[in-house]
C-alpha cells in the first residue's frame, strides 16, 4: 500500500509521487503518516519534512502550511514555501540566518509585527540550513524534524 503524496506551494508543485510514509512537523508535534491514516487536517509548523520511499529519503524544508490526509491514501500538503534539500543553497541559507540573527539582536527596537516576521525568517533559515546539511552528509542524519528551539 502506498501513499499518493503531493506537496504544493502557491508558486509550484514541489514534489508529487507515491511514497511509503511521511513525517512532518505539525502544531501538535511531529507526526508520521502511514497508509490507511484517518482523514486529517492539521497545521504545519516550520520544519523538516521527511518522505520515505523504500530506502530513499527525501528531505523538504517547509515554512508552515497545512496537511490534508484524504480518504484513499491521498495526502496533500499546502505549504507556504517548500524546498527540497538539493535545491537549497547552504551558503545563502547561512547568510540569511546571520541577517536574521542580527535583526533579532535589535529586537527591542522592532515593532511586534517586525519581530514576528524576523523570528519567522530566522526559523526558516535554520530549517533550511538543517535540511541542506542533510544532503551534504548523505541521507542518514538524525530525523528529529522539529526545530530545537
Amino acid at each position: 500500500m502506498k501513499l499518493k503524496f503531493q506537496i504544493v506551494t502557491p508558486e509550484r508543485v514541489v514534489f508529487s509521487k507515491e511514497v511509503d510514509s511521511l513525517t512532518c512537523p505539525t502544531e501538535m508535534g511531529q507526526i508520521t503518516v502511514l497508509p490507511n491514516h484517518i482523514p486529517l487536517i492539521a497545521s504545519l509548523m516550520p520544519g523538516e519534512l521527511v518522505v520515505r520511499h523504500q530506502k530513499d529519503e527525501e528531505h523538504i524544508a517547509v515554512s508552515g502550511g497545512f496537511i490534508e490526509v484524504r480518504p484513499g491514501n491521498d495526502i496533500v500538503i499546502l505549504a507556504d514555501t517548500a524546498e527540497r534539500s538539493d535545491e537549497i543553497n547552504a551558503e545563502r541559507a547561512e547568510q540569511a540566518k546571520k541577517r536574521a540573527e542580527q535583526a533579532m539582536q535589535q529586537a527591542s527596537t522592532l515593532s511586534k509585527e517586525e519581530f514576528a516576521a524576523t523570528e519567522a525568517a530566522l526559523q526558516r533559515s535554520l530549517v533550511r540550513l538543517k535540511v541542506a546539511k542533510k544532503t551534504h552528509r548523505g541521507h542518514h542524519g538524525s530525523s528529529d524534524g522539529i526545530l530545537n528551539q
Binding site: A42, F66, R70
Partner: peptide, 30 residues
C-alpha cells in the same frame, strides 16, 4: 472516493480553520 467520512483536526477545528480559510480565499484570488 467514499463520501461519508469525517476529518480529524489537529489541534482543534477552529484553530486550523482560522488559518486555513483565509489562506484558501487568498489562493483563489491570487
Amino acid at each position: 472516493r467514499p463520501l461519508h467520512f469525517e476529518y480529524t483536526f489537529e489541534p482543534t477545528p477552529d484553530k486550523v480553520l482560522e488559518h486555513l480559510i483565509p489562506r484558501i480565499l487568498e489562493s483563489q484570488i491570487y
